[in-house]
Simulated assay, not measured.
Amino acid sequence: MSDRFVLLSGCSGGGKSALLEELARRGHAVVEEPGRRIVQEELAAGGSALPWLDLAAFARRAVAVALADRRRMADRPGPVFFDRGLIDAASALEASGGEPVVAALAAAHRYNRKVFLTPPWPEIYAGDAQRRHGFDAALAEYARLETTYAMLGYETVVLPKVPVSQRADFLLARLAE
């Protein structure tokens, strides 16, 4: 299963969601970012498991959602592309002062050995109702994730800063190597 599960990670606001939409348009199975779904649910319900209110609670929910996403996609044939996933959530939980779970979860739930990172791209970065942190926080997150994936033995592939269709072509070509 792990070879079929492909992670898109990297800098917040770096174009992961647009790339995921392009991959879906091309007929690939995709899983939207757990964090964005959680923020939408929490805002709608007046909840507090939000990264700017209670990062640890938010990250714990993101871990649970990411695990559920993996289970939901287990029988799906072919590659499945995840906008973030379990390792990003576990890394956020540790960074928030929560439980040290990255190594254990990553060992039990592997993804494809190639992880595709969207680099910091200030020209396209934009905050919104669900992304309230600034670009400096996005840069810190990127550095943390880059270190985490290397520590876990993943090969990180930095996506080029090109139009989304070319990014998808690049990703699919590198995945096929």
Rank of each mutant, 00 (worst) to 15 (best):
A90K: 03
V30W: 01
G98H: 11
Q40A: 14
A108S: 14
R25H: 09
A150E: 13
W121N: 01
P51C: 06
D88E: 11
A176L: 09
A66W: 04
L50K: 06
L50D: 06
A57Y: 00
T156H: 10
K16R: 03
G14I: 01
L105K: 01
L19R: 03
S96Y: 01
M1R: 15
V63S: 03
H28F: 12
R167G: 01
R72G: 11
Y154M: 02
P51W: 02
E33T: 00
A138Y: 03
I38F: 06
R110A: 07
L53K: 14
V31Q: 12
A137S: 15
L172F: 05
D128L: 01
G153S: 07
V102T: 12
S48I: 13
G98L: 14
L117A: 04
V80D: 07
Q130N: 15
E123D: 05
N112Q: 02
M1A: 15
E141V: 14
V157K: 03
V63K: 03
A64G: 04
N112G: 10
A68L: 13
H109E: 14
L172M: 01
D75L: 10
R4P: 07
P51I: 01
T147R: 15
A106H: 05
V65D: 12
L50H: 02
R26T: 06
T148S: 08
A49F: 07
R84D: 02
L171I: 05
A62V: 03
A45C: 09
D3H: 13
S91T: 14
E41A: 04
V162K: 04
R113W: 13
R174H: 14
A24Q: 10
A138C: 09
R36V: 02
G47H: 09
R76F: 05
E32C: 08
F5D: 08
D3Y: 13
E33N: 04
L117V: 08
E177L: 14
F135Y: 03
V39I: 06
L53T: 14
S96V: 06
E177C: 09
R71V: 11
V101Y: 10
E141S: 15
A56K: 12
S12G: 02
A18S: 09
A64H: 10
V65W: 13
P100T: 11
A103R: 12
K161S: 12
G27F: 00
A66H: 00
A104D: 14
L20G: 05
V102F: 08
F135A: 07
R110K: 04
D83T: 03
G47Q: 10
G14P: 04
V80Q: 07
R4V: 07
R4T: 07
M151S: 15
I38T: 13
P100W: 12
E146C: 12
R70C: 04
V30C: 11
V31S: 08
A44S: 10
V101G: 11
R132E: 12
L171D: 03
M73P: 12
P120K: 00
A143N: 06
R167M: 04
L50P: 02
